[in-house]
Design a protein around this nucleic acid. Sequence first.
DNA 1: CTCAGTGTTCAGTG
DNA 2: TCACTGAACACTGA
Length: 278
Amino acid sequence: MPELPEVDAGRVLAERVAAGRRILGVRCAPDPIVFEDPPARVRRALLGRRVRGVGRHGKHLWLELDRRPWPCLHFGMAGGLETPASAGVTLVSAGKGSRPPGWPPRFTKLHLTFHDGGELVMTDARRLGRIRLRHDPRSEPPISRLGFDALLDLPTPARFLALLGARAAPVKALLLDQSFAAGVGNWIADEVLYQARIAPRRRARSLSSDEARRLRAALRRVIRIAVAAGSDSDRFPRTWLFHHRWGRQAGATTARGERIRHDTIGGRTTAWVPARQR
DNA sequence: CTCAGTGTTCAGTG
DNA sequence: TCACTGAACACTGA
């Protein structure tokens, strides 16, 4: 679930299910990797609290409770939020006390139940996600170390150009750097570079002001459209590289028939189109 | 059985 | 010291 649009979809889900509700049940999986704090402390912090709202910065999400500390969630490579409805399970005349099949889901790490019967679950099969308690998430690591939120705090074109000028890394690596733009992950970085027509190995400081302008515009467009689609990739425009990048060895091509190349840049598999990106 | 993957961290390098 | 790179982490699914 991890790039900004999917985390924001999680924020919307949590807002709908949890905001204004009191937490009546807390179940923590015995997982010392995902839980930064002992489950007992997490439980004590959450039980009986009312959820005031849900915050997000980049790929980090947190619940704002009526008392601190607050739980902060990061979803790693494979984590996510679910409710019985979002899990595709329908409650139809289930017997008293019975649970819908497949609920709670496999790989559940944190399971919250609310006074109105709602439920919220964080899952993480790969265990690269984290659950931590913070008194003021925005002012404490790791969230305090993040750069601008790619949806809510995009710098002005002039400021964006200045930020690029300070960096020698390949622009692909810079886009993945969360202390630069919080929320951008591997597919968004590739999509943005494709739409901006900039080659991923270009050094950030080598971009012209026009290229920087295109990069910023593409970043804003991709993030906004993906968020507006509720992170449902079936609703992303068919022209996006996203839909074509996976065709690996079969000789993948874009919707316009251009060859897609796969290289490792910034430590990640990078899909790009040499015919279009310079 | 092997390997890639919507991520982050940290040791090593220049 | 700063910046950047690549391996490590952990586990599923192709």
